[in-house]
Design a protein around this nucleic acid. Structure first.
Length: 412
DNA sequence: CGTCCACGTCTAC
DNA sequence: TAGACCTGGACGG
């Protein structure tokens, strides 16, 4: 769940599900979690949430009690407590019954009902974190979705920062300036404007107005800076898209997050570039996979290895946005065929030479393999990603809608 | 069964 | 700029 939209959807989920629910007792942490205990005990309290960029803050508010003395005597809270969460790669909130507690639930809040229910912070990989009596992490910039004006000013007033010496795709992951942007959003945003991902960030940003005139009538910027303008009348400039594209995900229908839905087809259909067949991908200088189309730009890693175009999918009940079932992605349909026609370069899969695999996405592993930008492998596997059922039909046929990745018809 | 990959930070060398 | 930190799904053999 973890980019700005998912964190915000998580806060909406908490507010919706916990509305009217009274929680009680102590907050319990799993044995395995290395995060801090939450020293909050209260006979009756409520839980609300808010999000900012890639963080969510839960507020535990004690309900008024008729007997303050009793409360003090038992060490119970009488003041609200904020807990600030970061979701890592796999965090999310769930409200369930006690016996349906998700595996990997690491922090639990119990309701006062008889068959009690539990609001839990679930995090399979445990990269997530929380801070009791916490505050928004210092150093993270304004929220790209809900503090747009200050987000924009923060970026434009610090363009001399050396952080902007880097390629735009890497700067977009810098939470000091782009709090809420993550790996799929940077790909979708740059794709919309056709900006090569490895172009120096400052070159792309300098020249943008401090004020966002898009709201106003068409400003039609003077042609003073026509050279760099990756600005389109309808979509606006890069900073505006850092605001609007995430909001599109929030407005997809709330599915993005609600685990109950377990249907991410809408989200998948929304993706135009990230993990989409036909798009290219290379690892950036931090080992993260950058998805894009066309020219990678001058600062592209020279040795980039091409991550293989694999597949992924999850099981139905999973809540990740990566899965889905029906896939229907239309846009570039042609890739299949065009790749076939001229592709050849393609990157071969990085073979592994020796052992030692680095870590997450770190690039070090690279063995020799190819350095080219990867292009999707042809029909053979890239499209077949996960779905084994349908044989990869070669060109032919129908509507070429490349299923984007992961398609899963029903698995049986 | 082993390899590769994943929506993100953190912190040592 | 590397590793570390983790679990698990999809594949390949």
């Amino acid at each position: 769940m973890p980019e700005g939209p998912e964190l915000h959807l998580a806060s909406l989920y908490v507010n919706k599900m916990c509305n009217g629910v009274v929680f009680t007792g102590a907050v319990r942490k799993s044995e395995v979690s290395k995060n801090p205990d939450v020293p909050f005990i209260c006979e009756a309290y409520r839980i609300t949430a808010t999000s900012r960029g890639k963080e969510v803050r839960l507020t535990l508010t004690p309900m008024k009690s008729d007997d303050p003395k009793q409360r003090v005597k038992t060490g119970q809270a009488d003041q609200p407590m904020d807990i600030v969460f970061r979701f890592g790669m796999s965090g999310y909130f769930r409200l369930t019954t006690e016996d349906e507690l998700p595996k990997h639930a690491h922090l639990c809040f119990f309701s006062k009902e008889t068959p009690c229910r539990v609001l839990s912070f679930v995090d399979v990989r445990r990269f997530g974190s929380w801070q009791p009596s916490g505050v928004w992490q210092p150093g993270r910039g304004p929220c790209i979705m809900f503090e747009y004006k200050s987000f924009r000013e923060n970026v434009l007033s610090h363009l001399s920062d050396r952080a902007f010496d880097r390629p735009i795709c890497e700067v977009l992951l810098n939470q000091k300036y782009f709090n809420g942007i993550g790996n799929y959003l940077r790909a979708e945003i740059l794709f919309r404007l056709n900006i090569p991902p490895f172009v120096p960030a400052r070159n792309v940003l300098e020249g943008l107005e401090s004020e966002d005139f898009c709201d106003k009538e068409k400003p039609v910027k003077n042609d003073t800076n026509t050279k760099t303008s990756f600005i389109t009348e309808e979509s606006g400039d890069l900073l505006r898209l850092c605001h609007t594209v995430p909001l599109e995900v929030v407005n997809l229908g709330g599915k993005g997050y609600d685990p109950e839905k377990a249907d991410y087809s809408e989200f998948e259909a929304w993706l135009q570039c990230y993990y989409v067949d036909g798009m290219k991908s290379i690892r950036d200088h931090n080992g993260r996979t950058m998805w894009f189309k066309g020219d990678p730009g001058p600062m592209a890693p020279k040795d980039s290895k091409s991550p293989k175009a694999k597949k992924r999918a999850k099981k139905e009940d999973d809540h990740d946005y990566t899965d889905e079932k029906k896939v229907s992605r239309s846009h570039s349909e042609s890739t299949t065929k065009k790749t076939v026609t001229k592709q050849e370069i393609v990157t071969k899969t990085p073979k592994k030479g020796k052992d030692a695999r680095p870590k997450e996405a770190k690039s070090k592993r690279q063995r020799e393999n190819t350095r080219d930008v990867k292009t999707p492998q042809l029909g053979k596997k890239s499209m077949a990603r996960r779905r084994k059922s349908s044989s990869a039909e070669p060109t032919a046929a129908g509507p070429q809608r490349r299923s984007g990745r992961v398609t899963r018809q029903n698995d049986k």
